[in-house]
Each structure stands twice: as C-alpha cells, then as structure tokens.
Design a protein around this nucleic acid. Structure first.
Lengths: 215, 215
DNA sequence: GTCTATAACTAGATAGAC
DNA sequence: GTCTATCTAGTTATAGAC
C-alpha cells in the first residue's frame, strides 16, 4: 500500500472524528506510520490533503448520483419527491463497499466541511461537482413543478442538517443508546432511525403545517 | 463595562462564528480591546472561558425553560407535543432581548459545542443543568405516554440537528438566498423557515411514515 | 487589576542529506 | 521517495513589575 493512500486512510478517519482544524499533520502521519514530511511532499499542504480526502469519495459518489438523478429526469413518467430522495440511498451506501464505514465517514466529513472551515469545502464541492447539483435540481423540479427553487433549497438544507449533524455525533448517539436504553445500535441502526424522519419533507403534512405558520 | 464582560462579549461572537478551536485568545482579547493576560486572570483558562460564555446564556435560559416545561407537567390537562415544542420558543427568543442576536448566537454556540470539542460541552450542559432535561422528558411523557424514552431521544436529537446545523450555517444560507434567489433574509427569516420543518415531528404523518419504514 | 515580557509548547512547512 | 533537523509563526499560559 502506497504512502499516499496510507495518509489518506489515516486522515479521513481523524478528520471525521476530530474535525479538520482539530487534527494535526503529526497525528495523521504517526497514525499512518509515515514520515511527517510525506504529507507536504505528496499533497503540498494540509488544505490540499483535505481536498484529496474529499475527492476520493466524491469521485466514487458523483457519477453514481448524477446518473441516478439523471435517469429520473429522462424518464417518461414524472418521479415523486420520494423517488428523488431515494436516489441518494444506493450511491451513498455504495461507499460502504468501497471502504469500511465509508458512508458514515463521508457524511461526517461533509458535516465537518460545513462547520469547520467557513465554507471553503462548500465552495469546493459546488464548483468541482456541479453536475450533481444540476441533476438534483432538475429531478426535483420534474417531480414537483410547483415547488420553487427557493423552497427546495431550504428544505434540502434542513434535511442535510439533520443527516450531517446526526452522523457527526453518531458516536455520542450510539453511546447514549447503549448507556441510557441498553440498546446496542450501530451506524446502520442510526441511519434506519433517521430515514423516516427526513422522509417527512416529501410528505403532504409538510404543506399543511407550512401553511399554518405563514404570516 | 468591565473587562470580564468585554471578553465574554467578544468571545461569544468569535466562538459562534469560527468555532472554539478556530478562535484564539489573541483574537478575543484584541477584539475586546483588553490585554491578552486578562483572559487567564479572569477565567483561568480557555476551557473555563468557554464554560463561562455558555453559562451566561444558560443561566438566563434554564430557569425560563424549566418553568415553562414544568408548568406543562403540573397542569391538569395533558399538553400536546406541540405545546411542549412551543414551550421552547419564548425562552429562546428572550435571549434576543437579553442580548443582540442572542438567540442565534446561543444556538450556534450549541452547535459548535456538539461538533467542535468532542462532547465536553454536552457533558457540561447535562450535568450542570439537569433540571431542564428532566422537565422536558416529563412533559413529553405526559403529552404522549405511548412514546418511549428512546423514541423521544431520537426525535429530539434529529430536531436539534436541524436547528443547530441551520443556525451554524446561517451566514452561508443568508448568502445563498441573496445571491441565488435575490431574497433578503435575516436570522429571523431563517428561523421562520425552519419552524414548520421541525414542527413535523409532532405531527401524525411521522407515525405513518415511520411505520412504513419498519423492518 | 492591568500591563510587559517571556516561557513552554504546538502548528504547518521546508532544506538538504541519503 | 523518504528521512532528520530545523524554521517560522502560531498557540496557551504565567511570572513579575507597576
């Protein structure tokens, strides 16, 4: 196994666990059992290493997401919002076969990227992988033409918040479930809990409640 | 205005904006226009300063939350889950009168505390302010006796995730709304968007969807 | 209580031998 | 490509004059 990959493997776990700011290059290289200077030799800087960690996942994820969402757009029949939402599941779970715990590591990294580094990762994703966003937007529009782009943006973001925050604190959640409820859950169990929760934004109940709160 | 308060005021804004790890004592003291050594003189350490920042908010919030939730428990009539959820709104909005932007600063700090520092703040809150959690649990149990403590825990956490993540990235959201939709929103506008979304977990639709996803 | 000066340490990055 | 040694700049924290 190459030095480059040893660094990437150690980095993604530490980054997802302690954040980008909270992880030093020294921790990464000693975990990876490589020399400190190797990071700068292979990646140039810590920032480039972060990008490389994210790219390794995005390069697996984005073609699968793009085609799953694209298929919904080219279908004759209109998809439901539930179809759009479900299109994310297989590509995300594929990351688990690509790498142990890949799905949860990736989602945690995504969460870190939003909160840790003041939007640099958000910029990176939207500019480097725009196809995913376009196809998603188109699929939702086809599923639900009345929904404005703005409404979609808000709901998508809230959904992402739930998932990303849940995955970021999944260790704490698994702890609490074990200590307070004597319930042994794993990452997959957490995902099973969160899916019905986020599936709500596809539901009609949302519109009733939303209407009640308008001013 | 005392040095201590100048430090607290500068610290809470920087912490909420850049995280606890991402903010140095030098940034805080130069923003507050006090000497670097003042932090350690008045608070002892950075960790104690973080606790003090959170305490200032929690000391305002917790008695109000405790009594609002406690009232629901002692009422003759059973509250609805919606009542329980609504009990949070006034105490949280009170933070805005206590301090400019207090509500959103506090919620952002809460989010930072979950993700930045690996659970130390979660520990601090649950051990220092247990009354809020007990009263919340009791109120929900009275509103909805069939709901197990475990189910409640999951839903509460997902709801918190949505709110906390939304508030943490509220600057990015306000930016996007302006640039992509030419819509001028402020923090209050973001809150108005998120309320109907999180109100869903009180709704009956949740149970239908939840049942569909059981295996 | 407030300041200067500095200790003690950690960070990311690099030069240069091998 | 990999290593040691080191640089520069940043961090928290403290000692001691005022």
């Amino acid at each position: 196994m190459s030095t480059k990959n040893k660094i990437l493997d150690a980095a993604e776990v530490l980054f997802s666990d302690k954040g980008f700011n909270g992880t030093s290059l020294r921790e990464i290289t000693s975990q990876a059992e490589v020399n400190l200077a190797a990071v700068n030799y292979h990646f140039g800087s810590k920032k480039e290493l972060i990008k490389a960690v994210m790219s390794r996942y995005m390069n697996e994820l984005s073609p699968r997401l793009e085609s799953a969402l694209g298929a919904l757009c080219t279908d004759e029949a209109s998809p439901t919002l539930n179809d759009v939402f479900s299109a994310f599941i297989d590509p995300l779970l594929y990351l688990n076969t690509f790498k142990d715990n890949g799905t949860s590591i990736f989602l945690q990294l995504l969460g870190r990227g939003y909160t840790d580094s003041q939007g640099f990762l958000r910029w990176f994703l939207t500019t480097q992988y725009p196809g995913v966003f376009t196809n998603f937007t188109n699929a939702v529009h086809k599923a639900y033409p009345e929904l404005t782009a703005e409404e979609m943006f808000w709901r998508l973001h809230f959904t992402m918040g739930t998932i990303v925050f849940t995955m970021s604190s999944s260790d704490a959640l698994i702890d609490i479930a074990l200590n307070d409820f004597e319930r042994q859950v794993d990452i997959a169990g957490v995902i099973r809990q969160v899916i019905p929760y986020v599936a709500l934004w596809c539901s009609s109940a949302y519109h009733q409640i939303s209407a009640c709160h308008e001013v």
